[in-house]
Nucleic acid binder design. Sequence first.
DNA 1: GGTGTTTCTTAACCAAAGTCAACGAGAGTA
DNA 2: TACTCTCGTTGACTTTGGTTAAGAAACACC
Lengths: 204, 204
Amino acid sequence: METSKESGKNALIEYIEQYMPLTSEEKSSLEGLNLFREYKKGEVLLKEGAYSKETYFVLKGCLRSYYIHDAEEITTEFYTELEGVSPACSQTDEASEYFIDCVEDSLVSVGTQDMEEDMFQKFPRFESLCRILSEKLLLKQQTAMVNYKTSSPEQRYLQLMETNPGLVHRVPQYQIASYLGIKPESLSRIRKRIMQKAFSAHHH
Amino acid sequence: METSKESGKNALIEYIEQYMPLTSEEKSSLEGLNLFREYKKGEVLLKEGAYSKETYFVLKGCLRSYYIHDAEEITTEFYTELEGVSPACSQTDEASEYFIDCVEDSLVSVGTQDMEEDMFQKFPRFESLCRILSEKLLLKQQTAMVNYKTSSPEQRYLQLMETNPGLVHRVPQYQIASYLGIKPESLSRIRKRIMQKAFSAHHH
DNA sequence: GGTGTTTCTTAACCAAAGTCAACGAGAGTA
DNA sequence: TACTCTCGTTGACTTTGGTTAAGAAACACC
């Protein structure tokens, strides 16, 4: 569908321009090299053990990264509209330790390491941008860690509901559970507890 | 003590050269701008609310970053020999959300944002290095998060003993406890449990 | 050396998550 | 429609961490 891909390009460029205005030369370079792909729900974009150099930027839909640990999926992150993923393996020459799959039908902009290096070569400002984004992400990750350490599973669930209420409905519960670091049964009980509290509060 | 500061300079340069060989011009620039400071155990290098632009690189001793959350210290990281810290506030124009203090008497190389920008200006390769280090750190943080989610407090303590056995003796237990995301009492119990297991295994 | 503070340990009790097992609702398929 | 598979829920029971309170041990400072 050409129209959604067109708007995809604009979304990507607008995203970058939040941080740094682009010259028209830079824009056309970006448009030239970016590749838009559509994935179906359940498709796996990156497999454990792969040496992929691809990076992803979600234009529509939802991706998810997860490890398999003792035969169980551990979801580490969800990526929705206007969020990007640069998997570890795309930067390290090592096999990926985790998977990325598609939670729902999605439109994704796919980049490669080669393209990235070309862009750094041609437009050194992009390397600055990447450093800044990477540092931003690091901060986000650090505060996420503190948050995780200082709150109970129930609090974490409530926080998720607040910061990203849609996610709970887009994503299967067992994926949310492992994302919160608990078992699906526990999440079920937590939800029940919350409902009961809400109910009795209602009766005050 | 001049001798320890001299060896400090070398340690810093050797550290950087792990990632990128330096020209003598780059080395002398680095030597020129780096500032070595000695801190006493318990000294606070960065306070919550401060707008510090300093970054630290530990040459000897041990630093520690921590939040104060509900009047309790939450230790987020320990930094020992040849590890660096770039606090969030040194990059964001915002007040620091956390503290950094000194776990034991330490020798630290202190940098500032201005110095950093000068260096990026003079030697653009430094910005590449910083991007790479920042991405490295991000990966480390991400795997730390997965590890944290997939293991119990007891397992986390055992992991810490394996990966960093010295730390447990250098640092007060209550700081280790909050680093592991538990209360000091629980850590005490965990240690006891582990001792008992080791003992009964001995008798097999 | 004594005094007080900080750190660590222990115990008793409670709340919450893990485990195991069973059941049920819904989607997809034959 | 009946069968299957996945996902979510529930219950009984176990394990573990949080809480509170008390004491012991280590440390620092006079």
